[in-house]
Design a protein around this nucleic acid. Structure first.
Lengths: 167, 167
DNA sequence: TTAAACTTTCAGTATTTATTGAAAGTTTAT
DNA sequence: ATAAACTTTCAATAAATACTGAAAGTTTAA
């Protein structure tokens, strides 16, 4: 397989995967492109490689910066801004986990906590509701705890601990 | 907080959460409604509660059935089909994990495996590409393994094992 | 067999999300 | 101060996704 083909395949696949994190396709594709690049790229280069407009590039670069999974690089002697991706997979994974926890888990935890306070009105419906909410809340809290551990963990420790226990 | 308000809040929040799993809003809302219901509901009841069309209800019920997180119930003496959600949070979580693994993780694993076979052409770009792909592949495989363990695990064992090690 | 009850499908439409390209804004070099 | 280089913004448009309501299809009771 040729490099250009492999790169294109990875960028496409990453574009699709990004939807599951809450990224749009182009945002994820820019990320993939920066991840596999040996050096930082300018918005112009990104535009050209992915065949997107300057505005689209700008907006999605911005969003990736907000996720803190790419960084803005100033190169002496260049007016242009350059961008590079986080290159350490572990750091990347933790950062993605952190953002998703904030965007996905925290809102549902908050709602579950709020609706836990539903009044006891004696009906079967409310009884079932409370039961379901209690269980969901428990699961969500445990998951939050596990995610917290992951976000704070050192890579070797995390995987070796997992392997030790689960094998 | 009144039951009806709590229910509505949860359904809304679940609708938003569902996007992160690859469900659309109504699909997730139907799921939430069925989860908190004390008894199975018909398509008619779902339509009325969520104020959606019969066609929309049907399509999203169908999708949830495909995810295997709700079940079709035949009630003797009734022509209508009824639906109920999986009520065991653990079983639900595992099923969601299973589906997402299939839809999200497997495609990227496959692509990473494919592009690992990129030719060595001696360029810096290809060298960097191979390095990044190797790391991503490693992380994805480990995550797949962890997910596999989760999908197959018994609830008490899983959480107590996690707690024992991480605390 | 017929018709009522029920479910599914689908073409057209509505809504949401994504994208564009140029205007507006900012920075830097002369 | 001026203009070139660069970045951001935004109104309009395009594309994708979601939804409708009625037609088509299926099941059941009489």
């Amino acid at each position: 397989m040729k490099y250009s083909e492999a790169k294109s395949d990875l960028i496409q696949a990453w574009g699709n995967l990004g939807y599951s994190w809450g990224l749009n396709k182009v945002m994820a594709q820019i990320h993939a492109l920066l991840m596999v690049s040996a050096k930082p790229l300018s918005a112009e280069e990104i535009m050209e490689e992915l065949k997107i407009s300057r505005g689209n590039a700008n907006m999605n670069i911005r969003a990736l910066l907000e996720w803190n999974i790419i960084y803005r690089i100033s190169v002496p002697g260049e007016r242009k801004e350059f961008f590079r991706a986080e290159k350490d997979t572990w750091v990347l994974a933790r950062q993605v986990a952190k953002e998703r926890r904030k965007r996905e888990l925290e809102p549902i935890l908050k709602t579950l906590k709020n609706v836990s306070a539903v009044e006891n009105d004696g009906t079967e419906e409310t009884k079932e509701f409370k039961k379901v909410v209690k269980e969901l809340k428990g699961f969500a809290e445990k998951s939050d705890g596990l995610l917290d551990t992951f976000i704070k963990a050192e890579e070797n420790w995390f995987w070796s601990t997992i392997m030790k226990v689960f094998k």
